[in-house]
């Protein structure tokens, strides 16, 4: 694909996706001012954050602080490139697409760590270290369930994985895959019960010291990560663009919307998990479940 078209395409998907996340967040959220407000609110909020001035702390790691939200946005975009939206439309449906996506999602850890570390303030710092603990616990199960979808496809390319679901979607073939993916995916985007680095107990945690456009960019980038996770989840578990009647892109959009709704709903439905409990949960529950998923899917694929 032409580079300019690719950039516009990915930018468009992430932009629209982030807006949809904001609308859904409002719809599921605690404040209710009627459906019209769902659609207007994100714009007003963005306008306020653009007007509000950026603050800084007294001796921050200024470069890292500037870089962190940009890195998060870049990772969301890079992860998205690996997914074919229609059979022919993919920015980079490369032979190691799953690894590209996995690498992008693991580096989210670096972005969040830098965001929390750089203001030289106590609560963001604790948030950064909490996210590191989280990321080290969900990283392996997350990569494992994504990898498992490559077994029937005999390829690490996302296009091939989608194509391999022609007869039966992976969500049926690998019943443990999607639940683990949703849980670890929410953790990647530190969303919902895994809002551990930005919880209320830390008064905002990693973004406590960020205001104005810096905070807006961080929020949008985080929504972008959620969008990328949903698009990828739709592709590797729900058959991506496969489906009758409707054109391929419509199926992708529809399935992505379903996953986005699940992610956003979980954000308001569950209490925040304790970080120590998450570490235990990641290693002692998620990891064995993911391993069982690998071998069960392997046996089924033979």
């Amino acid at each position: 694909m032409n580079p300019v078209v690719s950039v516009l395409f990915v930018g468009g998907v992430l932009g629209i996706g982030a807006y949809v996340v904001a609308v859904l967040d409002r719809a599921f959220g605690p404040v209710s001012r009627g459906p019209r407000d769902w659609f207007v609110w994100p714009i007003r909020r963005a306008a306020f954050l653009a007007v509000q001035r950026r603050t800084e702390t007294e001796r921050p790691d200024a470069e890292a602080w500037i870089l962190a939200p940009a890195l998060l946005a870049a990772l969301a975009a890079a992860g998205l490139t690996a997914v074919p939206v229609t059979p022919s439309l993919a920015v980079a449906d490369v032979s190691a697409g799953v690894v590209l996506f996995g690498a992008a999602m693991i580096i989210v850890m670096v972005a969040v760590f830098l965001q929390g570390w750089s203001p030289n303030s106590l609560f963001p710092l604790i948030g950064a270290y909490r996210f590191a603990a989280m990321a080290l616990s969900f990283g392996i199960p997350f990569s494992l369930v994504v990898l498992t979808t490559a077994i029937p496809a005999e390829s690490l390319s996302v296009g091939a994985i989608v194509a391999s679901q022609e007869g039966l979607w992976n969500v049926v073939r690998q019943p443990l895959g999607l639940p683990v993916y949703l849980v670890t995916g929410a953790a990647v985007a530190f969303w919902g019960p895994f809002r551990i680095p930005e919880g209320t107990d830390l008064a905002g945690g990693a973004v406590l010291e960020a205001s104005g456009s810096a905070r807006a960019v961080w929020r949008i980038a985080r929504a972008g990560v959620l969008v990328t996770l949903s698009v990828m989840g739709a592709a590797i578990f729900l058959g991506g663009h496969l489906g009758p009647v409707l054109p391929g892109w419509a199926w992708t959009a529809l399935k992505t919307l379903v996953l986005l709704a699940v992610f956003v709903w979980s954000g308001h439905a569950f209490a925040r998990m304790r970080v120590e409990r998450f570490v235990w949960f990641g290693w002692v529950v998620l990891l064995p479940v993911a391993l069982v998923d690998v071998f069960a899917s392997g046996i089924l694929a033979l």
């Binding site: 694909m1 940009a70 870049a74 104005g212």
Partner: peptide, 24 residues
């Protein structure tokens, strides 16, 4: 090939975020 395009998208997204942050 494809990864070159991925790199371009990555850089563009990062740049867009930097510009947006600079807005205020």
């Amino acid at each position: 090939g494809g990864l070159g395009a991925a790199l371009v998208v990555l850089l563009a997204a990062g740049l867009a975020a930097l510009v947006a942050r600079w807005l205020s």
